[in-house]
Amino acid sequence: MASPPPAARALRRRGSLAPYGFLGPAALLFTLFFALPIGFAVYLSLRAVKVKGLGLGSHARTEVWAGLSNYTSALSDSELLSGSGRVLLYGALLVPTMLGAALFFALLLDVPRVRFGAFSRLVIFLPYAVPGIVASTLWGFLYLPQVSPGYYLLTQAGMSGPDLLHGGGLYLAMANIAVWGGTGFNMIVIYTSLRALPAELYEAARLDGCSELQIALRVKIPLVAPSLVLTFFFSMIATLQVFAEPMTLKPLTNSMSSTWSPLMKVYRDAFVQGNVYSAAATSVVIAAATLLLSFGFLKLVNKRTNGGS
C-alpha cells in the first residue's frame, strides 16, 4: 500500500510527542526539587573534610572522597540506634492512642442525629491547626511543675503531680503533645470515609436487629479499614520523623539529649557540629529505613487483604 500522506505522518509524529510534553513539567519539577537534592545528599554523604596541620589559616580544609566511612560511622554510632529505640517506644505509645481516639470520635460523630456535630468536629480538629512548635511550648510550660497551673491545683489538693519531664514520664509528655495535635486530622480522614459509606448498609443491619454499637463494630470499622491503614501509615512516618516537639522540650529538661530522636542527631551533626557529610549519611540511612518500613507495612497489609478475599 501507499504510505500515508505527509500531513498525516507529521500529525502522528506530533501525537506521539504529546505525552512527553504533558509529562515534561512534572518530570522537571521532580528532578529539580526531589531527585537532585536527594542526589546531592547522597553525594555529600560520600565526602568528608580533611584538615592539614592546625587547620588555621586559609585553605587548611579540603573536601575529599570518604567512600563509605560516613555510613560506617553513622551505623556504628550507638546513639542512632538508641534514638530509634526511643522513637519506637514513643510511637508505640502514640499511634494506638491517637488512632483509637480518632476512630472513637469519628464513630461518635457518625451516630445518627448527633447534636453539635459540626461544632465538636471543629473543636477536635482545631489543635491540628496549631503549629507543633507552639503546641510543644505550651505543653512544655504545663509540664514544668513550678509554673504549671495543673501542678498548682494538685499541690493545693495535697497531691504531687507526675514527673513528666524526666525518665518514663518524658515519653508520656511527648506522646500527649502528638495525640493532642494529631487526633483531629486522623478523625477527619476516618469520618470522611464513614460518610462515604452507603446508608443502605446501616438500614439493612438495623433490619437485621443490630444496635448502633454493633453497627459500629461489625459494619463501620471493617469498611473504613483502608483509611485506618492510611492513617496508621501516615502516623508511622510522622513518628519516625519526630523533631519539633523534642527540640522544643529539650531546653526545659536535663533528660532530653541532643540526639534524642534520629532527626535530632542529623540536626546536631549538621548545624551544631558543622559536619554536613555525616549528617547527610545519617539522613540517607534514616530515609532508607523509613522507606523499608513503609513498604514493608504496605506489603504486609496488601498480603492480608489479598489473602482474606
Binding site: V51, H166, N254, S255, S257, S258, R268, V272, Q273
Partner: peptide, 20 residues
C-alpha cells in the same frame, strides 16, 4: 580550639544526664 561546638554539645548531653 577549632571544635568548641562539638565539646559544648557533648557537655550538654553528658552533664545533663549526670546532673539529672
Amino acid at each position: 580550639g577549632p571544635n568548641v561546638n562539638v565539646a559544648y554539645s557533648a557537655f550538654k548531653d553528658a552533664f545533663g544526664k549526670a546532673a539529672q
